[in-house]
Amino acid sequence: MTIKDISEESILSGCKKNDRRSQELLYRHFAKKMYAISMGYAGERPLAQDILQESFIKVFKNIGQYKNDGSLEGWIRKIVTNTAIDHIRNRKRADNYLEAEPNDPGLHTHNQALKMIGFNEIMEHVGRLPEGARLIFNLHALDGYTHREIAHKLEITEGTSKSQFNRARKLLINFIGNMNL
């Protein structure tokens, strides 16, 4: 049985009653996507697993606060993102940013490469980014935060957010372009 076979309402109702079966269904339904998002922020699998675990514990403990005023996925995703930020902050390496401006990659190269590359390869390169830069990159690219919001969230300037995002993007494209495809 999957979450598709049961209404989201009854799953939510079960989770609010701490019904383990409902909790598992909810987890199984969102686990892949949230794990990938955690990977994007963490840059490594062990940390991504910690983020995922902690996020879902928060989800189940706070499910009563979900008011159906947005999508359930969006609410869970927000928890995952905030948990990832907390984890990276706790590692005290979030101020680890890119200093040098990478060369502008050739558009042709990266278009060709993107067709050939998969999740694991891109994750490998994302994992090489400094944590601060990776965080900004994911907040903007993956979760759609504006630079103003990122600046406010991470207590940095808007300019820093923009420049770090651009440097991270260029660096990733360069990494991809340099791959032996």
């Binding site: 892949k32 996507k33 794990y35 999740f119 891109i122 993956l142 993007r169 494209i173």
Partner: peptide, 16 residues
């Protein structure tokens, strides 16, 4: 690149 990145993350089938 950004759209591609978002798509590849959100369509990941890797099970935790």
């Amino acid at each position: 690149f950004i759209k591609w990145y978002k798509h590849i993350i959100e369509s990941s089938e890797e099970e935790p």
